[in-house]
């Protein structure tokens, strides 16, 4: 009967240890081992995707790792034991990435944070611990119900490898969850620095000004060329100018007097048709 309390003791013990680790040891350890790895992507979307996918990878690898442990998931024809070490490695890598993600706020020491960051960081911990406790309690209740339903699982004979694997996962879960919360709810700070934005704006303005200056020069040059051509035409063959009747002047078409050259053309068409027929 006592052995049935083993999972509960593992969960609670891990919770207490992780809580103590996060509250006491983690900042000191972070100060000593704080990684300089920083995600610097100038666009908002990749950052969000990076954070959320990191969390997804962590949960997926943790779930798969748990499933590979003996006695956890036994399906006919399925052997997951080969996945145990790769998934554990992925989980550890994801944990490292999450805790160093943009120098994750969750793992920063207090004197490196300003008041907003401190408030945000302090918000991650209760939420993270609440999430973990909810998750662990739900899992425990489910296992308890399953155990009540069938007497096939004997908690007293749980493989030590399974117990150790579960404990490792839970411990990492507790340690990494605040960083995972940060990665998931990535605040997406200023992606492009103010200086860069200002420099881009200045460059655009400069280009526009130059373009405007160039177009004015081109217009002026074009006008000069047109004037030259006009002058040349005027001096040479003035008589060859296209003869257009001035407005209001009457032109004789088909024996009738009509106003303007365009009207004269319109009137002239039916006469041509008549000639052909």
């Amino acid at each position: 009967m006592d052995a049935q309390w083993l999972p509960y003791a593992v969960v609670v013990g891990t919770a207490v240890l992780a809580f103590l680790f996060n509250m006491v040891a983690s900042p000191r350890l972070t100060r000593a081992l704080n990684s300089p790895v920083e995600v610097h992507v100038p666009w908002r979307r990749p950052r969000i995707i990076a954070g959320k996918s990191l969390v997804t990878i962590w949960f997926a690898s943790a779930a798969l790792y748990l499933a590979t442990l003996p006695q956890v998931l036994e399906l006919p024809g399925v052997d997951l034991s080969g996945w145990s070490i790769p998934t554990l490695a992925i989980m550890l890598l994801a944990s490292f990435a999450a805790t160093t993600y943009k120098r994750s706020l969750a793992q920063q020491v207090e004197d490196q944070l300003d008041e907003r960051e401190l408030a945000a960081r302090n918000g991650f911990y209760p939420l993270a611990h609440q999430t973990v406790l909810m998750f662990a309690s739900t899992l425990f209740v489910i296992l308890f119900i399953v155990q009540l339903g069938s007497n096939e699982i004997d908690l007293g004979t749980i493989n030590s490898e399974t117990a150790l694997g579960s404990a490792i996962t839970l411990l990492f879960f507790f340690w990494v969850t605040p960083s995972l919360v940060h990665a998931w709810r990535d605040p997406v700070p200023d992606e492009v620095s103010e200086e860069m934005r200002r420099a881009l704006k200045d460059a655009k303005r400069e280009l526009r000004r130059e373009f405007r200056g160039l177009s004015i020069e081109i217009d002026a040059a074009g006008a000069e060329v047109k004037d030259e051509i006009r002058k040349a035409m005027g001096m040479g063959e003035t008589s060859k100018k296209k003869g257009r009747s001035p407005r209001g002047l009457k032109v004789a078409v088909n024996g009738r007097l009509v106003k303007g050259a365009s009207a004269a053309k319109k009137r002239a068409k039916p006469a041509k048709k008549g000639k052909r027929s």
Binding site: E115, R116, S193, E194, E195
Partner: peptide, 16 residues
Amino acid sequence: MSRLELAELVGVNSQT
């Protein structure tokens, strides 16, 4: 002023 300059003057991160 840039955000960075203002941030330095008031003693916070430029993101803040």
